[in-house]
Design a protein around this nucleic acid. Structure first.
Lengths: 330, 330
DNA sequence: CTGAAAGCGCTTACAG
DNA sequence: CTGAAAGCGCTTACAG
């Protein structure tokens, strides 16, 4: 491999001058700079990052530990948000997947320590509380899409409550009166907060709460979840006769569309449907296309990265707002 | 940060002995090894990777350039396949996202060169031909889910033709006689090969080809694609009256299920449905659950990584077999 | 504005 | 089995 000394010999300068050019030191005389740049070009020199890092204080590495993250399509936006900023700031984002069977969090951390990472983003697949090993205290840590029960780390999570309030208000304002909210598993934080948000909207709008049913249709324990969305949607449409249904996630909306069609009704005409997530291709697959609250994954990834860059230490829990994507389902 | 010398001082040995212990050199006396291990523990020493790499010949870094890869959920399995092996082999997988707007392939390559990567996997989002900049010739390169037109690099791609043949045969064997294959855009290689595969199956089974219609229902140019699956499915079911439909991808199957239901028919009873991809949550969302040919992304990721590890140079194009996931839709 | 020296934290190559 | 020296490709700190 071509080294700084090869370039120096070729350009007829001291190797320190080459180093200066590579590092954009403005004190190099224009003529020397050009000679060096030319030699770099001709010889195909590329700085050896490992050698640079050995000598420098900063590694430029930010870790990204993904807690089984990558099973759900949109969660990858967490990584993208961070990576886009890493690229812009000339940092290295070291993405490490963690899961029960293969990679431990300790293993991932060890990796990051060996690379002298300057900070780490810990991201979870869905919004939840996590308990991190104490080794995280040794380097700046930010949580994304999750939070720490003992409040030892700064974190950013989706603003579930406001999102639910916002989409519910949007439906009420359009004239829908009688709403069924088919919620996610009541054990998860998103479900708890969204329930409050929907109720907030009814209260703020002055709507009659007897026109509201909230029910969890993803049930069972964490590792044995199943959906009763179809069954309950059918029963509720027949019995309660809502004019709108809000679904806890886009895949559930697919199920509800089937139920609505089977009952001879039309989404967007006989019954309005809204949802959460903006799950990849799903919303556009439906007819009419699904209106949904998009999760702010990309923004959370960015926020987490920026937080590390800024060198802050305040242990805030930040709320990231969803974005309402209006299509034609209500 | 704790260095090898700190550990040596604490353990009362030469720093070279610490280096030996860290690198599992068997010549260290048991007693000294224990002393060093203890000091490492007590001081919390972690080897500095950058310094190691500066001195060693090998960087241990394998690059993974992902061509906008991460928009479709299952494509991440390409990375997972490679990453699992990287972990096992104590290598670093450096994942770099490439796209038109932000990161160029040249930028990603430059990154990899600076890290003295030992090889690179170039993976595309869907099965297609690619043209790589000539800089790839400077380091061992393997293509995954794509191939090079000039055959300059080894590659692995899904065995589309056999997959189509296999699922079609499986349907024919179950007694289905009259098949509509709603194909992907005819411009893409997968569509071309699968068409051949379906025809292979009819020929091999001795089935009557007048009972087969193959039609592309994803149409338009690459950047302006749209689906006429619903419209054509409805027309074909009414006119041609197939007893089975094969869909080019799982999302298309969702659309077809809606059409079938709207016509008052039942999937798996009145009409069999098969598909391709095994796209994340979609197959299980449908009722009955969708039988589909799963893309071998994980396996391709593994193969590509192994190929680099093995140090082979043969420029083969490998075919990776799909796996039939039988559920209840036919 | 430029260069010769020292040093980063390791491993390599050699000596004992 | 262990250690003192040299060196990896750079940057830092200093001198001119």
């Amino acid at each position: 491999m071509v080294t700084i000394k090869d370039v120096a010999a070729h350009a007829g300068v001291a190797f320190k001058t080459v180093s200066r050019v590579v590092n954009n030191d403005p004190t190099v005389k224009q003529k020397n700079r050009e000679k060096v740049l030319n030699s770099i070009q001709v010889l195909g020199y590329r700085p050896n990052r490992a050698a640079q890092l050995t000598r420098r204080k900063k590694s430029g590495v930010i870790g990204f530990i993904a807690d089984e993250l990558l099973k759900v399509p949109y969660t990858f936006d967490l990584i993208r948000g961070a990576q886009d900023l890493a690229w812009e700031n000339n940092k290295e984002l070291m993405v490490l997947n963690v899961n029960i069977n293969k990679y431990s969090v300790d293993g991932a951390l060890n990796h990051l320590f060996q690379h002298r990472a300057e900070g780490v983003i810990y991201a979870s697949m869905y919004h939840r509380a996590v308990k991190l090993p104490s080794a995280f205290e040794e380097l700046p840590t930010v949580l994304a899409n999750c939070y720490d029960l003992s409040n030892s780390y700064p974190s950013i999570v989706p603003d579930e409550r406001n999102a639910a309030k916002e989409i519910t208000l949007s439906m009420l304002r359009q004239g829908y009166k009688r709403l069924v909210f088919l919620n996610l598993n009541e054990n998860i934080i998103a479900a708890k907060l969204r329930k409050l948000g929907v109720e907030d909207a009814f209260a703020e709008f002055g709507a009659d709460k007897t026109n509201l049913i909230i029910e969890s249709v993803i049930i069972g324990s964490e590792h044995n979840e199943y959906s009763v969305a179809r069954k309950r949607a059918a029963e509720l449409i027949r019995g309660f006769k809502p004019d709108a249904i809000l679904c806890g996630q886009d895949p559930m909306a697919v199920e509800v569309y089937f139920v609505v069609q089977a009952l001879g009704l039309t989404v967007g005409k006989d019954i309005g449907i809204g949802s959460f997530d903006d799950w990849d291709t799903i919303p556009g697959l439906l007819q009419p296309a699904l209106s949904t609250m998009a999760l702010p994954h990309y923004e959370m990834g960015q926020w987490a990265f920026n937080y590390l860059l800024s060198g802050q230490t305040e242990k805030t829990t930040q709320m990231a707002p969803f974005t309402l994507i209006s299509r034609h389902s209500y």
